[in-house]
Design a protein around this nucleic acid. Structure first.
Length: 468
RNA sequence: GGUGCUGUAGCCAAGUGGUAAGGCGUGGGACUGCAACUCCCUGAUCAUCGGUUCAAAUCCGUUCAGCACCUCCA
Protein backbone atom coordinates (compact mmCIF):
# COMPACT_ATOMS: atom_id res chain seq x y z
CA UNK A 1 0.00 0.00 0.00
CA UNK A 2 1.28 3.41 -0.93
CA UNK A 3 0.63 6.77 0.66
CA UNK A 4 1.57 10.15 -0.71
CA UNK A 5 3.62 11.58 2.10
CA UNK A 6 3.50 15.37 2.29
CA UNK A 7 6.93 15.26 3.89
CA UNK A 8 8.67 13.70 0.89
CA UNK A 9 6.03 14.70 -1.67
CA UNK A 10 6.30 11.16 -2.96
CA UNK A 11 4.20 8.07 -2.82
CA UNK A 12 5.81 5.81 -0.28
CA UNK A 13 5.17 2.20 0.61
CA UNK A 14 3.37 2.15 3.94
CA UNK A 15 5.32 0.40 6.67
CA UNK A 16 4.00 0.92 10.19
CA UNK A 17 6.28 1.27 13.19
CA UNK A 18 4.83 -1.87 14.67
CA UNK A 19 3.77 -4.63 12.32
CA UNK A 20 0.04 -5.06 11.99
CA UNK A 21 -0.76 -1.91 13.94
CA UNK A 22 -1.36 1.64 12.86
CA UNK A 23 -1.19 4.70 15.04
CA UNK A 24 -3.06 7.50 13.37
CA UNK A 25 -3.81 11.05 14.47
CA UNK A 26 -6.24 13.34 12.69
CA UNK A 27 -6.62 16.97 13.72
CA UNK A 28 -10.20 17.55 14.74
CA UNK A 29 -12.40 20.61 14.67
CA UNK A 30 -12.54 23.58 16.98
CA UNK A 31 -15.97 23.32 18.49
CA UNK A 32 -17.47 26.79 18.46
CA UNK A 33 -20.36 26.07 16.10
CA UNK A 34 -21.88 23.30 14.02
CA UNK A 35 -19.22 21.78 11.81
CA UNK A 36 -19.27 22.93 8.21
CA UNK A 37 -18.99 20.75 5.15
CA UNK A 38 -15.32 21.62 4.84
CA UNK A 39 -14.74 20.15 8.28
CA UNK A 40 -16.51 17.03 7.11
CA UNK A 41 -14.02 16.27 4.36
CA UNK A 42 -11.06 15.14 6.48
CA UNK A 43 -13.46 13.31 8.76
CA UNK A 44 -14.86 11.36 5.84
CA UNK A 45 -11.71 10.66 3.89
CA UNK A 46 -9.60 9.63 6.84
CA UNK A 47 -12.40 7.58 8.32
CA UNK A 48 -12.51 5.79 5.00
CA UNK A 49 -8.77 5.25 5.08
CA UNK A 50 -9.06 3.89 8.59
CA UNK A 51 -11.78 1.50 7.48
CA UNK A 52 -9.59 0.30 4.67
CA UNK A 53 -6.64 -0.25 6.99
CA UNK A 54 -8.89 -2.36 9.17
CA UNK A 55 -10.21 -4.20 6.14
CA UNK A 56 -6.58 -5.02 5.37
CA UNK A 57 -6.24 -6.47 8.83
CA UNK A 58 -4.46 -3.69 10.66
CA UNK A 59 -5.36 -2.83 14.19
CA UNK A 60 -5.85 0.91 14.07
CA UNK A 61 -5.52 3.23 17.00
CA UNK A 62 -7.26 6.31 15.68
CA UNK A 63 -7.08 9.50 17.66
CA UNK A 64 -8.88 12.70 16.77
CA UNK A 65 -9.11 15.63 19.12
CA UNK A 66 -11.66 18.30 19.80
CA UNK A 67 -10.11 21.70 20.32
CA UNK A 68 -12.30 22.99 23.10
CA UNK A 69 -10.39 26.06 24.19
CA UNK A 70 -9.82 28.74 21.59
CA UNK A 71 -10.46 32.39 20.82
CA UNK A 72 -13.50 31.61 18.74
CA UNK A 73 -15.09 29.58 21.49
CA UNK A 74 -14.43 32.32 23.99
CA UNK A 75 -15.88 34.88 21.62
CA UNK A 76 -18.99 32.82 21.18
CA UNK A 77 -19.30 32.33 24.92
CA UNK A 78 -19.15 36.06 25.49
CA UNK A 79 -21.80 36.62 22.82
CA UNK A 80 -24.12 34.16 24.45
CA UNK A 81 -23.14 35.19 27.94
CA UNK A 82 -22.31 31.57 28.60
CA UNK A 83 -19.38 29.63 29.88
CA UNK A 84 -16.86 28.56 27.26
CA UNK A 85 -17.17 24.97 28.38
CA UNK A 86 -20.92 25.06 27.77
CA UNK A 87 -20.30 26.12 24.19
CA UNK A 88 -17.69 23.48 23.51
CA UNK A 89 -19.71 20.72 25.16
CA UNK A 90 -22.76 21.61 23.15
CA UNK A 91 -20.96 21.60 19.82
CA UNK A 92 -19.02 18.45 20.57
CA UNK A 93 -22.36 16.71 21.00
CA UNK A 94 -23.70 18.24 17.80
CA UNK A 95 -20.55 17.28 15.96
CA UNK A 96 -20.94 13.69 17.09
CA UNK A 97 -24.47 13.66 15.73
CA UNK A 98 -23.23 14.90 12.38
CA UNK A 99 -20.47 12.31 12.37
CA UNK A 100 -23.01 9.61 12.98
CA UNK A 101 -25.07 10.83 10.06
CA UNK A 102 -21.96 10.81 7.88
CA UNK A 103 -21.23 7.31 9.16
CA UNK A 104 -17.88 8.47 10.48
CA UNK A 105 -16.95 6.02 13.18
CA UNK A 106 -15.97 7.42 16.56
CA UNK A 107 -12.22 7.54 17.05
CA UNK A 108 -10.55 5.12 19.40
CA UNK A 109 -10.03 8.21 21.54
CA UNK A 110 -11.41 11.72 21.18
CA UNK A 111 -9.25 13.72 23.57
CA UNK A 112 -10.24 17.19 24.67
CA UNK A 113 -7.59 19.88 24.88
CA UNK A 114 -8.88 21.11 28.22
CA UNK A 115 -8.36 17.70 29.76
CA UNK A 116 -4.72 17.49 28.73
CA UNK A 117 -3.38 20.70 30.21
CA UNK A 118 -1.04 18.84 32.55
CA UNK A 119 0.66 17.09 29.66
CA UNK A 120 1.02 20.38 27.85
CA UNK A 121 2.70 21.99 30.83
CA UNK A 122 5.06 19.03 31.02
CA UNK A 123 6.00 19.25 27.36
CA UNK A 124 6.47 23.00 27.49
CA UNK A 125 8.70 22.56 30.55
CA UNK A 126 10.77 20.03 28.67
CA UNK A 127 11.11 22.39 25.73
CA UNK A 128 12.26 25.18 28.06
CA UNK A 129 14.78 22.86 29.72
CA UNK A 130 16.18 21.83 26.37
CA UNK A 131 16.45 25.42 25.24
CA UNK A 132 13.71 25.20 22.63
CA UNK A 133 11.41 27.58 24.43
CA UNK A 134 11.64 30.69 26.57
CA UNK A 135 9.45 32.71 28.86
CA UNK A 136 8.90 36.37 28.14
CA UNK A 137 8.32 39.07 30.74
CA UNK A 138 4.53 38.75 30.77
CA UNK A 139 4.63 34.97 31.23
CA UNK A 140 4.06 34.08 27.60
CA UNK A 141 6.07 31.05 26.55
CA UNK A 142 7.39 31.03 23.00
CA UNK A 143 8.95 28.30 20.92
CA UNK A 144 12.43 29.24 19.72
CA UNK A 145 11.86 28.33 16.09
CA UNK A 146 15.38 28.89 14.81
CA UNK A 147 16.71 26.45 17.35
CA UNK A 148 14.95 23.64 15.51
CA UNK A 149 17.20 23.19 12.52
CA UNK A 150 14.68 21.29 10.44
CA UNK A 151 11.91 23.85 10.75
CA UNK A 152 10.07 24.06 7.44
CA UNK A 153 10.75 20.48 6.37
CA UNK A 154 7.09 19.51 6.06
CA UNK A 155 5.83 22.63 4.30
CA UNK A 156 9.09 22.89 2.35
CA UNK A 157 9.48 26.49 3.29
CA UNK A 158 12.68 28.37 3.51
CA UNK A 159 12.94 29.80 6.97
CA UNK A 160 14.54 33.01 5.72
CA UNK A 161 11.75 33.61 3.22
CA UNK A 162 9.29 33.20 6.02
CA UNK A 163 11.16 35.67 8.13
CA UNK A 164 11.21 38.19 5.31
CA UNK A 165 7.47 37.82 4.96
CA UNK A 166 6.90 38.35 8.61
CA UNK A 167 8.94 41.51 8.77
CA UNK A 168 6.47 43.21 6.51
CA UNK A 169 3.78 42.56 9.04
CA UNK A 170 4.86 44.49 12.05
CA UNK A 171 3.66 42.64 15.06
CA UNK A 172 3.00 44.97 17.89
CA UNK A 173 3.33 44.37 21.57
CA UNK A 174 4.96 41.00 21.31
CA UNK A 175 8.08 40.06 23.14
CA UNK A 176 9.41 37.46 20.77
CA UNK A 177 13.07 36.94 20.19
CA UNK A 178 12.26 36.27 16.58
CA UNK A 179 9.17 36.89 14.47
CA UNK A 180 8.98 33.21 13.61
CA UNK A 181 8.56 32.13 17.20
CA UNK A 182 5.10 30.93 18.13
CA UNK A 183 3.13 30.72 21.34
CA UNK A 184 3.17 27.66 23.58
CA UNK A 185 1.44 29.25 26.54
CA UNK A 186 -0.26 32.59 26.83
CA UNK A 187 -1.51 34.63 29.80
CA UNK A 188 -5.21 34.86 30.45
CA UNK A 189 -7.26 37.89 29.71
CA UNK A 190 -10.18 38.97 31.84
CA UNK A 191 -13.08 36.60 31.64
CA UNK A 192 -11.19 33.92 29.82
CA UNK A 193 -10.81 30.37 31.03
CA UNK A 194 -7.36 29.75 32.48
CA UNK A 195 -5.18 27.17 34.17
CA UNK A 196 -2.33 27.47 36.63
CA UNK A 197 1.15 27.00 35.22
CA UNK A 198 4.73 27.69 36.28
CA UNK A 199 4.73 30.78 34.04
CA UNK A 200 1.40 32.45 34.53
CA UNK A 201 -2.29 31.78 34.76
CA UNK A 202 -3.27 31.23 31.18
CA UNK A 203 -3.99 28.75 28.44
CA UNK A 204 -2.06 26.73 25.90
CA UNK A 205 -1.31 27.71 22.33
CA UNK A 206 -3.10 25.71 19.70
CA UNK A 207 -0.16 23.75 18.33
CA UNK A 208 1.00 22.25 21.60
CA UNK A 209 -2.37 20.56 22.10
CA UNK A 210 -1.98 18.14 19.23
CA UNK A 211 1.64 17.32 20.04
CA UNK A 212 0.66 16.38 23.56
CA UNK A 213 -2.47 14.44 22.71
CA UNK A 214 -0.69 12.45 20.01
CA UNK A 215 2.10 11.62 22.44
CA UNK A 216 -0.22 10.60 25.24
CA UNK A 217 -2.52 8.36 23.24
CA UNK A 218 -0.21 7.11 20.51
CA UNK A 219 3.35 7.54 21.71
CA UNK A 220 6.40 9.53 20.64
CA UNK A 221 6.46 8.13 17.13
CA UNK A 222 3.22 7.73 15.24
CA UNK A 223 2.51 6.25 11.83
CA UNK A 224 0.13 8.66 10.18
CA UNK A 225 -0.75 12.25 10.93
CA UNK A 226 -3.52 13.73 8.86
CA UNK A 227 -5.60 16.84 8.39
CA UNK A 228 -6.60 19.56 5.95
CA UNK A 229 -3.92 20.99 3.71
CA UNK A 230 -4.23 24.36 5.37
CA UNK A 231 -2.79 22.81 8.50
CA UNK A 232 0.53 21.99 6.88
CA UNK A 233 1.75 25.41 7.77
CA UNK A 234 2.02 26.47 10.44
CA UNK A 235 0.14 23.94 12.55
CA UNK A 236 1.77 20.69 11.56
CA UNK A 237 5.15 22.29 11.06
CA UNK A 238 4.95 23.55 14.61
CA UNK A 239 3.80 20.21 15.94
CA UNK A 240 6.88 18.63 14.41
CA UNK A 241 9.12 21.27 15.95
CA UNK A 242 7.56 20.72 19.37
CA UNK A 243 7.34 16.96 19.38
CA UNK A 244 10.67 16.18 17.81
CA UNK A 245 12.51 18.65 20.00
CA UNK A 246 10.81 17.34 23.14
CA UNK A 247 10.82 13.62 22.35
CA UNK A 248 13.94 13.29 20.27
CA UNK A 249 12.21 11.07 17.74
CA UNK A 250 10.57 11.36 14.35
CA UNK A 251 7.08 12.56 15.16
CA UNK A 252 5.12 10.96 12.34
CA UNK A 253 6.28 8.70 9.54
CA UNK A 254 3.56 9.68 7.08
CA UNK A 255 1.67 12.93 6.62
CA UNK A 256 -1.59 12.97 4.71
CA UNK A 257 -3.45 16.13 3.78
CA UNK A 258 -6.81 16.53 2.13
CA UNK A 259 -7.57 19.24 -0.40
CA UNK A 260 -10.00 22.04 0.24
CA UNK A 261 -13.67 22.05 -0.48
CA UNK A 262 -14.88 25.00 -2.54
CA UNK A 263 -18.43 26.15 -3.04
CA UNK A 264 -19.47 27.06 -6.56
CA UNK A 265 -15.78 27.35 -7.38
CA UNK A 266 -15.12 29.82 -4.63
CA UNK A 267 -13.66 29.40 -1.24
CA UNK A 268 -16.29 28.80 1.37
CA UNK A 269 -16.62 31.69 3.74
CA UNK A 270 -19.27 33.40 5.76
CA UNK A 271 -18.65 36.71 4.07
CA UNK A 272 -19.38 35.28 0.63
CA UNK A 273 -22.60 33.81 1.95
CA UNK A 274 -21.74 30.37 0.63
CA UNK A 275 -21.22 28.76 3.98
CA UNK A 276 -22.90 25.43 4.66
CA UNK A 277 -22.91 23.40 7.81
CA UNK A 278 -23.30 19.66 7.72
CA UNK A 279 -26.57 20.23 9.52
CA UNK A 280 -27.79 22.40 6.65
CA UNK A 281 -27.13 19.62 4.19
CA UNK A 282 -28.83 17.05 6.38
CA UNK A 283 -32.09 18.92 5.97
CA UNK A 284 -32.18 18.12 2.30
CA UNK A 285 -30.15 14.95 1.93
CA UNK A 286 -29.26 11.81 3.74
CA UNK A 287 -25.72 12.63 4.85
CA UNK A 288 -24.57 9.49 3.10
CA UNK A 289 -24.95 11.48 -0.09
CA UNK A 290 -22.46 14.03 1.18
CA UNK A 291 -20.09 11.23 2.10
CA UNK A 292 -20.44 9.62 -1.30
CA UNK A 293 -19.99 12.99 -2.98
CA UNK A 294 -16.68 13.55 -1.25
CA UNK A 295 -15.37 10.08 -1.96
CA UNK A 296 -15.94 10.54 -5.67
CA UNK A 297 -12.92 12.80 -5.86
CA UNK A 298 -9.38 12.06 -4.82
CA UNK A 299 -8.86 13.26 -1.28
CA UNK A 300 -5.86 15.41 -2.16
CA UNK A 301 -7.54 17.32 -4.95
CA UNK A 302 -9.64 20.39 -4.45
CA UNK A 303 -13.31 19.55 -4.64
CA UNK A 304 -16.09 21.81 -5.73
CA UNK A 305 -19.48 21.69 -4.09
CA UNK A 306 -22.72 22.81 -5.66
CA UNK A 307 -26.39 21.92 -5.57
CA UNK A 308 -26.19 20.29 -9.01
CA UNK A 309 -23.24 18.15 -8.00
CA UNK A 310 -25.03 16.99 -4.88
CA UNK A 311 -28.03 16.06 -6.97
CA UNK A 312 -25.84 14.04 -9.31
CA UNK A 313 -24.19 12.35 -6.34
CA UNK A 314 -27.60 11.44 -4.92
CA UNK A 315 -28.54 9.80 -8.22
CA UNK A 316 -25.26 7.92 -8.39
CA UNK A 317 -25.58 6.62 -4.88
CA UNK A 318 -29.15 5.56 -5.59
CA UNK A 319 -27.88 3.31 -8.29
CA UNK A 320 -25.88 1.37 -5.73
CA UNK A 321 -28.68 1.31 -3.19
CA UNK A 322 -31.19 0.13 -5.76
CA UNK A 323 -28.96 -2.75 -6.66
CA UNK A 324 -28.50 -3.73 -3.02
CA UNK A 325 -32.24 -3.52 -2.57
CA UNK A 326 -32.78 -5.83 -5.50
CA UNK A 327 -30.54 -8.42 -3.87
CA UNK A 328 -32.38 -8.08 -0.59
CA UNK A 329 -35.64 -8.82 -2.37
CA UNK A 330 -34.20 -11.71 -4.29
CA UNK A 331 -32.91 -13.15 -1.07
CA UNK A 332 -36.48 -13.46 0.15
CA UNK A 333 -37.65 -15.44 -2.85
CA UNK A 334 -34.54 -17.23 -4.05
CA UNK A 335 -34.63 -21.04 -3.75
CA UNK A 336 -32.75 -22.17 -0.69
CA UNK A 337 -30.06 -24.06 -2.57
CA UNK A 338 -26.31 -24.15 -2.73
CA UNK A 339 -24.49 -22.43 -5.56
CA UNK A 340 -24.39 -24.28 -8.84
CA UNK A 341 -21.12 -24.68 -10.68
CA UNK A 342 -22.20 -21.97 -13.06
CA UNK A 343 -22.91 -19.63 -10.19
CA UNK A 344 -19.59 -20.43 -8.61
CA UNK A 345 -17.87 -19.43 -11.82
CA UNK A 346 -19.96 -16.27 -12.07
CA UNK A 347 -19.19 -15.33 -8.53
CA UNK A 348 -15.49 -15.99 -9.04
CA UNK A 349 -15.61 -13.63 -11.99
CA UNK A 350 -16.48 -10.81 -9.60
CA UNK A 351 -13.12 -11.25 -7.91
CA UNK A 352 -11.78 -8.84 -10.45
CA UNK A 353 -13.91 -6.05 -9.00
CA UNK A 354 -12.54 -6.68 -5.54
CA UNK A 355 -9.02 -6.75 -6.91
CA UNK A 356 -9.55 -3.48 -8.69
CA UNK A 357 -11.06 -1.95 -5.58
CA UNK A 358 -8.10 -2.97 -3.46
CA UNK A 359 -5.56 -1.88 -6.04
CA UNK A 360 -7.18 1.56 -6.11
CA UNK A 361 -7.32 1.90 -2.36
CA UNK A 362 -3.74 0.68 -2.10
CA UNK A 363 -2.74 3.50 -4.38
CA UNK A 364 -2.88 6.38 -1.93
CA UNK A 365 -6.49 5.78 -0.99
CA UNK A 366 -7.91 6.44 -4.44
CA UNK A 367 -11.59 6.24 -3.51
CA UNK A 368 -12.71 7.76 -6.79
CA UNK A 369 -11.19 4.86 -8.65
CA UNK A 370 -12.32 2.32 -6.08
CA UNK A 371 -15.91 3.45 -6.52
CA UNK A 372 -15.78 2.50 -10.18
CA UNK A 373 -15.17 -1.09 -9.12
CA UNK A 374 -18.32 -0.90 -7.03
CA UNK A 375 -20.28 0.35 -10.01
CA UNK A 376 -18.94 -2.45 -12.13
CA UNK A 377 -20.10 -4.93 -9.53
CA UNK A 378 -23.47 -3.20 -9.44
CA UNK A 379 -23.89 -3.57 -13.17
CA UNK A 380 -22.92 -7.21 -12.93
CA UNK A 381 -25.59 -7.72 -10.30
CA UNK A 382 -28.28 -5.77 -12.11
CA UNK A 383 -27.66 -7.58 -15.34
CA UNK A 384 -27.24 -11.07 -13.98
CA UNK A 385 -28.93 -11.82 -10.70
CA UNK A 386 -32.47 -13.19 -10.94
CA UNK A 387 -35.03 -14.96 -8.80
CA UNK A 388 -33.86 -18.24 -10.28
CA UNK A 389 -30.49 -17.95 -8.64
CA UNK A 390 -29.74 -19.88 -5.49
CA UNK A 391 -29.96 -18.16 -2.16
CA UNK A 392 -26.32 -18.88 -1.50
CA UNK A 393 -25.30 -17.09 -4.69
CA UNK A 394 -27.46 -14.05 -4.02
CA UNK A 395 -26.17 -13.88 -0.49
CA UNK A 396 -22.58 -14.07 -1.68
CA UNK A 397 -23.16 -11.18 -4.08
CA UNK A 398 -24.83 -9.15 -1.39
CA UNK A 399 -21.98 -9.77 1.04
CA UNK A 400 -19.46 -8.75 -1.56
CA UNK A 401 -21.26 -5.52 -2.33
CA UNK A 402 -21.76 -4.90 1.37
CA UNK A 403 -18.08 -5.38 2.14
CA UNK A 404 -16.88 -2.91 -0.46
CA UNK A 405 -19.48 -0.33 0.49
CA UNK A 406 -18.67 -0.79 4.14
CA UNK A 407 -15.04 0.14 3.53
CA UNK A 408 -16.30 3.33 1.95
CA UNK A 409 -18.64 3.83 4.88
CA UNK A 410 -21.74 3.57 2.73
CA UNK A 411 -24.66 1.77 4.30
CA UNK A 412 -26.62 -0.35 1.89
CA UNK A 413 -28.86 -2.11 4.37
CA UNK A 414 -32.47 -1.28 3.77
CA UNK A 415 -33.86 0.49 6.76
CA UNK A 416 -36.57 -1.62 8.28
CA UNK A 417 -39.57 0.51 7.66
CA UNK A 418 -43.16 -0.46 7.93
CA UNK A 419 -46.10 1.11 6.23
CA UNK A 420 -49.28 1.83 8.01
CA UNK A 421 -52.20 -0.39 7.21
CA UNK A 422 -54.02 2.23 5.18
CA UNK A 423 -51.16 2.47 2.70
CA UNK A 424 -50.74 -1.28 2.58
CA UNK A 425 -54.42 -1.60 1.79
CA UNK A 426 -54.14 0.92 -1.02
CA UNK A 427 -51.22 -0.95 -2.53
CA UNK A 428 -53.22 -4.17 -2.37
CA UNK A 429 -56.20 -2.43 -3.99
CA UNK A 430 -54.01 -1.18 -6.77
CA UNK A 431 -52.62 -4.63 -7.39
CA UNK A 432 -56.16 -5.96 -7.61
CA UNK A 433 -57.09 -3.20 -10.05
CA UNK A 434 -54.06 -3.95 -12.20
CA UNK A 435 -54.93 -7.59 -12.26
CA UNK A 436 -58.43 -6.67 -13.40
CA UNK A 437 -56.84 -4.40 -16.02
CA UNK A 438 -58.52 -1.42 -14.47
CA UNK A 439 -55.49 0.76 -15.10
CA UNK A 440 -57.34 4.01 -14.58
CA UNK A 441 -58.05 3.02 -11.04
CA UNK A 442 -54.55 1.67 -10.56
CA UNK A 443 -53.03 4.95 -11.69
CA UNK A 444 -55.40 6.87 -9.52
CA UNK A 445 -54.26 4.95 -6.48
CA UNK A 446 -50.63 5.39 -7.44
CA UNK A 447 -51.12 9.15 -7.69
CA UNK A 448 -52.85 9.17 -4.37
CA UNK A 449 -49.97 7.33 -2.76
CA UNK A 450 -47.53 9.72 -4.38
CA UNK A 451 -49.43 12.51 -2.71
CA UNK A 452 -48.84 10.67 0.56
CA UNK A 453 -45.13 10.51 -0.18
CA UNK A 454 -44.97 6.92 -1.38
CA UNK A 455 -43.47 6.09 -4.76
CA UNK A 456 -44.41 2.74 -6.28
CA UNK A 457 -42.41 0.77 -8.80
CA UNK A 458 -43.61 -2.44 -10.45
CA UNK A 459 -40.48 -4.51 -10.76
CA UNK A 460 -40.08 -8.07 -11.87
CA UNK A 461 -39.65 -8.96 -8.23
CA UNK A 462 -42.99 -7.43 -7.36
CA UNK A 463 -44.23 -4.05 -6.22
CA UNK A 464 -41.62 -1.90 -4.64
CA UNK A 465 -42.18 1.25 -2.67
CA UNK A 466 -39.98 3.99 -1.42
CA UNK A 467 -40.47 7.30 0.23
CA UNK A 468 -40.31 10.38 -1.94
C1' G B 1 7.58 38.13 -4.32
C1' G B 2 8.26 32.75 -2.26
C1' U B 3 6.26 27.64 -2.32
C1' G B 4 2.87 24.45 -4.39
C1' C B 5 -1.72 22.65 -6.91
C1' U B 6 -5.13 22.35 -11.01
C1' G B 7 -6.78 22.53 -16.40
C1' U B 8 -9.31 15.11 -19.50
C1' A B 9 -16.39 14.32 -23.13
C1' G B 10 -22.69 18.79 -21.55
C1' C B 11 -21.31 18.15 -15.99
C1' C B 12 -18.27 15.47 -12.24
C1' A B 13 -13.95 12.55 -12.30
C1' A B 14 -9.92 8.32 -12.55
C1' G B 15 -5.77 7.40 -15.40
C1' U B 16 1.63 9.65 -14.90
C1' G B 17 5.20 6.39 -21.36
C1' G B 18 2.19 1.98 -25.20
C1' U B 19 -3.02 4.16 -28.75
C1' A B 20 -8.62 7.38 -23.03
C1' A B 21 -12.16 3.85 -16.33
C1' G B 22 -16.57 5.04 -13.91
C1' G B 23 -20.81 8.09 -12.60
C1' C B 24 -24.53 11.98 -13.68
C1' G B 25 -26.99 14.04 -17.81
C1' U B 26 -28.60 13.67 -23.21
C1' G B 27 -30.57 10.84 -27.36
C1' G B 28 -32.18 5.94 -29.32
C1' G B 29 -33.73 0.86 -28.35
C1' A B 30 -35.52 -3.49 -25.13
C1' C B 31 -38.66 -4.65 -20.96
C1' U B 32 -43.45 -2.58 -18.74
C1' G B 33 -50.77 -1.56 -19.40
C1' C B 34 -48.30 3.27 -18.34
C1' A B 35 -44.51 5.26 -15.28
C1' A B 36 -40.25 4.03 -12.59
C1' C B 37 -36.26 0.58 -12.03
C1' U B 38 -33.06 -2.35 -15.01
C1' C B 39 -30.41 -3.79 -19.49
C1' C B 40 -28.21 -2.56 -24.47
C1' C B 41 -26.46 1.33 -27.68
C1' U B 42 -24.88 6.62 -27.82
C1' G B 43 -19.84 10.90 -26.60
C1' A B 44 -13.54 13.29 -25.81
C1' U B 45 -7.18 12.50 -28.64
C1' C B 46 -6.71 14.75 -22.92
C1' A B 47 -5.97 24.02 -22.05
C1' U B 48 -1.90 26.02 -25.72
C1' C B 49 2.65 25.83 -28.45
C1' G B 50 7.21 23.32 -28.98
C1' G B 51 10.65 19.31 -27.64
C1' U B 52 12.38 14.17 -26.10
C1' U B 53 10.88 9.07 -27.68
C1' C B 54 9.64 3.66 -32.00
C1' A B 55 5.55 5.39 -28.79
C1' A B 56 2.97 10.93 -24.45
C1' A B 57 -3.00 12.88 -21.61
C1' U B 58 1.22 10.67 -19.09
C1' C B 59 8.47 13.18 -19.42
C1' C B 60 10.90 18.35 -20.44
C1' G B 61 10.18 23.51 -21.66
C1' U B 62 6.68 27.85 -23.35
C1' U B 63 2.10 30.40 -23.14
C1' C B 64 -2.82 31.02 -21.22
C1' A B 65 -6.48 30.27 -17.34
C1' G B 66 -7.98 29.15 -12.34
C1' C B 67 -6.68 28.11 -7.16
C1' A B 68 -4.16 27.44 -2.39
C1' C B 69 -0.58 28.41 1.47
C1' C B 70 3.13 31.99 3.21
C1' U B 71 -1.75 36.03 9.39
C1' C B 72 -4.06 30.01 15.09
C1' C B 73 -9.72 28.74 8.33
C1' A B 74 -10.43 21.37 7.62
Amino acid sequence: MKILNTMSRKKEEFVPVEEGKVKMYVCGPTVYNYIHIGNARPMIVFDTFRRYLEYKGYEVNYVSNFTDVDDKIIKRAIEENADASEISKRYIEECKKDMEGLNVRPATTHPLATEEIGGMIDMISTLIEKGYAYVSADGTVYYRTRKFAEYGKLSHKNIDDLEAGHREIKEVGEQKEDPLDFVLWKPKKDGEPFWESPWCEGRPGWHIECSVMAKKYLGDEIDIHAGGEDLIFPHHENEIAQSEAANGKTFSRYWMHNGFLNIDNRKMSKSLGNFFTVRDISEKYDLQVLRFFMLQAHYRNPLNFSAELMEAAANSLDRILTSADKLTRLLEVAPDKAMTDGEKADFASTDRFVEKFEASMDDDCNTADAITAVFELVRFINAGATADNSKEYIKALYDRLFTLCDVLGLKIEKKQETLDSEIEALIADRQAARKAKDFAKADEIRDKLLGMGIILEDTREGVKWKRA
